[in-house]
């Protein structure tokens, strides 16, 4: 296997909501330009972990953390920098598509404008580029100024992907991005991830084992706020070390 560089490193991360401990001593290295899948049953802390990485967890009152999350040599959990700038390094794709209440064009242009890019002339080619990148351009080129809510759910999710890519992130955080989609839209998104990992580091949360097997390079298995096992995808599925992992893979508990 080729040399891996670590893009994002989570070190001794703990997280409490009030008195309840949600994440317990998490240590994960996320390799650059790979798809890392966080696998685990519902309620195991996958989503919280993801929201900690781009600090959206700050918004939920009463969250307290300890440990480090290191991105490009900077501990983003305790940084003094404007958190909005850290968030722009990571594109977020959530469970259900979240089109902003504006036109298709403006949805993609939103992040660009936030980065200070103004004017139709500059925005138009960039919007086109990212819609192509998200495999949506051909379907919307004639109605860029329609409200985004008129798109189908699958198209909306690809729009959200385009919107996320437009801020030029280094990492894509995807939280069960296909769970609300039909199988065809889901496979479009999955195929997109294959292409995108050439340029981006992808972190995908899912509870679907087959999806993990299809697109993961590395798998992290979580249960009740703890990392049980993490390994290369072949290693993980063919030769799991932990008993709990084996049980989960055989569907013994959910």
């Amino acid at each position: 296997m080729a040399m891996e560089t670590t893009k994002l490193s989570i070190q001794n991360l703990n997280l409490w909501f009030g008195k309840q401990k949600i994440l317990n001593n998490i240590n994960i290295d996320i390799p650059e330009n790979k798809v890392t899948v966080i696998l685990g049953p519902s309620g195991c802390g996958k989503t919280t972990l993801m929201k900690t990485m781009n600090r959206l967890v700050d918004l939920q009152g009463g969250a307290r953390t300890s440990g480090k999350i290191i991105l490009d040599g900077e501990d983003i959990l305790n940084t003094r920098r404007d958190i909005a700038l850290v968030r722009q390094k990571m594109g977020l794709l959530s469970q259900r598509p979240t089109p902003l209440p504006m036109s298709i064009f403006n949805n993609v242009a939103y992040g660009l404008r936030l980065k200070g890019i103004r004017g139709r002339k500059k925005l138009t080619p960039l919007v086109e580029k990212h819609l192509i990148e998200a495999n949506l351009w051909d379907e919307v080129r004639d109605r860029l100024h329609d409200p985004a809510s008129r798109l189908s759910i699958g198209q909306q999710q690809r729009l959200c992907l385009a919107r996320g890519l437009a801020v030029d992130p280094e990492i894509i955080l995807a939280d069960e991005p296909t769970s609300a989609l039909d199988p065809i839209s889901a496979s479009v998104i999955e195929n997109q991830f294959f292409k995108l990992k050439e340029n981006y580091t992808i972190l995908l949360v899912t509870h679907i084992m087959r999806q993990a097997r299809r697109i993961a390079d590395k798998v992290v298995f979580m249960y009740l706020g703890e990392v049980i096992e993490q390994a290369d995808v072949h290693e993980f599925f063919n030769n799991p070390k932990q008993k709990m992992t084996r049980d989960y893979l055989q569907g013994a508990f959910y």
């Binding site: 929201k51 781009n54 959206l56 918004l59 909005a84 700038l85 968030r87 722009q88 990571m90 594109g91 977020l92 959530s94 469970q95 259900r96 979240t98 902003l100 209440p101 504006m102 939103y110 992040g111 936030l114 980065k115 959200c160 919107r163 996320g164 801020v167 955080l173």
Partner: peptide, 27 residues
Amino acid sequence: VQHDLLDASLSLGASKWQTIKHVVLRK
């Protein structure tokens, strides 16, 4: 206004006020 929508705007690098202005008020 759904929380997901706020998260989406914030994760694109919007500040709180920008999110309120462009997303909450519009929605």
